[in-house]
Amino acid sequence: MATLSPTIRVQQTDQGGGGTAPPIPGGGGDGGRGDGYPDHGQRLRRLRLALAIGLTSVTMIFISLTSAYIVRRGLPTFDDHTGTYIQDWIPVQLPLALLLINTALLAASSLTAELARRQIIRQAALAPVRSIPGVSLGRESGFPWLALTVVLGFGFLTGQWLAWRELADRGFYLATSASSSFVYLLTAVHGVHLIGGILVLLYAAVVSLLHRPVEGRRIVVDVTAWYWHFMFGLWLGIFALLWFVR
């Protein structure tokens, strides 16, 4: 580099905006070669980043819905009849036992998703070893944690459906009162997000049946598992809101 000493000097003031400096290795995601064939560690990092960003917007959706819930709950409305403001919020009688069972199901599925994630990390780590001829590491696949997660996820959704039926039996329909509207809405929006997660998990399962490279599967399972944990946390938040802020 000494022979290529710069003949001009780009001023480095406070307002410089960069100025001259040797390229900083890794300073700006170096070597990020787009969608082509980046290495798997990088792909994983990028997808995790995207997941975090995507979950921010999911969070915004739920923040707006929950703040609408809280505002609406405290909001009086002008009553023609009495000429005064009245409160018309009717607390919904939630089927608590059923919802607790659902919560347990989702907690279990979050746990199995984590086990699936760790399992596939191990598999990915051992994949190079396995490719050495003559090295045997026992059975190819371990316990089907992924499948169990899907089953538990369906269990949760079925449970939510039963909870809706229960609510309807108690006379709380979507349009019955503001509170019941919000209960249906929040659970439905959460459910839609879970269905999305299940579809991705099913995709991961199909991919594993097709014997795709384990690194690719690992990325799908890893990101979906984090998504799944987030959905579990989100459910706890929604459940707490609906129960404690009735």
Partner: peptide
């Protein structure tokens, strides 16, 4: 955040 070229700091 992830695809900047080498030396392309923020």
């Amino acid at each position: 955040l992830d695809l900047r070229a080498k030396g392309m700091t923020m």
